[in-house]
Design a protein around this nucleic acid. Structure first.
Lengths: 228, 228
DNA sequence: CTAAAATGATAGTATTGCTATTATTAATAA
DNA sequence: TTATTAATAATAGCAATACTATCATTTTAG
């Protein structure tokens, strides 16, 4: 099933909307690829400019700096994921199945060609795993937050939390559990690839075990107290 | 109760052992403070050199670059925490109490003057919360890992996992759960301060709620299947 | 077709992230 | 104690980064 969502991005994320020009799209698309390839630290606008045959100055007309580009990409990812979550769960009435679907989306390596013409979900997923935290781990989090740059992440978390509360309205830590599972999905996957002894997943290519872990974490936490 | 541990650091972490000279200790101690003050991105050896009235070149004789200094500080923190964990739990026979103690140490804001003469635990705790992930989120994780720079973190995680298995030898994800709780302790605290809507803790100064959350997460996960 | 907007070309500047050299001071061993 | 070694300071320098500014040229939209 192939669906294309229209993602509405916060205007504070950019100086000039990259979706509205060929150059803008190239900056975002190839920027994403280059950040993944070089790592965020070694990535520069200069290198990107050379790769897409433009100038540093032109890129600076779209994004204040590389951190804003990263934040843009993360915001896009979270927005996309939220839309996907809505789309794939809103006809599921059973709270448990809904939650299972959500976890699948979180742990999923994302289908081949999903996303949009200029951003592919597969890549933002990799990015969020390997660089995601750097979007908010800065001295200027609070300012960025005031500009609502992290709203997509919070919305996603909020929706997840709401689904948790539908399953068990008495659970006391819905938001913390939701953000923990979001973070855990990425950190465990990262560990699995780079620091496997921090996990129990071995080096298996599929994410089934990770999904089992997330499910256990979630349902053991929110199952009503009296069982079996 | 005041205890001082001798932390043995991996030699790959530095070029010249900072513990063996006044200058070295100043670099580490004030480096820690300055990274927290400026944030890792804005922190430079130049700025540190000015602050401790030495030269950039002198600092480079101790640490290859600022990332190594960060990794050193993190390694110190994890080693210290592991020792503390051993010290405070090895006379506890009851697995559950042992785990509760471990969680306390993870969630704790750390006592006033603990640590050593040149590093204070309180500060490394702040650092691990706000910059910790940057130690391993790099393109060179695998190389750093080969040099065993993250061994202290893995050891801590391993010890935690062992305590989990003592409580419930059948639990299948001891390492993942341990690393998840470690990461969660920090990320939730960070969110609490900067992105509170990702949590359920409000802005309360004490960490009791966070501790309750971690306890719930842990024990709900590892409690034997049949209850009540 | 014209005006406005976007891009390209080029330059420049302060800071970062180093390395190298030599002089000076401190620690240590004979 | 002196001679030797080691650590630090002082200084310089360099390529890369992270921008900003200017002006010419092209593209686009009315």
């Amino acid at each position: 099933m192939e669906v294309d969502f229209r993602i509405r991005m916060n205007e504070k994320l950019y100086l000039r909307d990259p979706e509205l020009s060929v150059l803008g799209k190239k900056i975002v698309k190839q920027g994403l690829e280059l950040i993944i390839k070089l790592g965020f630290e070694d990535f520069t606008f200069k290198k990107l400019a050379i790769q897409i045959d433009t100038t540093e100055a032109s890129i600076y007309r779209y994004f204040e700096n590389k951190h804003r580009l990263l934040t843009y990409l993360m915001a896009w990812h979270w927005s996309y994921l939220e839309q996907k979550m809505v789309f794939y769960t809103n006809n599921i009435k059973e709270p448990e199945l809904r939650l299972r679907k959500i976890l699948e989306l979180l742990a999923a390596p994302a289908t081949e060609k999903s996303g949009s013409d200029f951003i592919t979900e597969r890549l933002t997923y990799d990015l969020v795993m390997s660089e995601g935290a750097k979007a908010y781990m800065t001295k200027h989090v609070n300012l960025d937050n005031r500009d609502r740059l992290f709203k997509p992440y919070k919305d996603l978390c909020g929706r997840f939390a709401a689904a948790i509360l539908e399953y068990n309205p008495k659970y006391k830590f819905a938001h913390s559990l939701a953000s923990t599972l979001l973070e855990t999905a990425h950190s465990q996957k990262y560990f699995m690839h780079h620091l496997p002894s921090l996990t129990d997943f071995g080096m298996e290519k599929d994410d089934k075990k990770l999904l089992r872990f997330l499910e256990a974490l979630l349902f053991d936490s929110i199952k009503p107290a009296i069982k079996k």
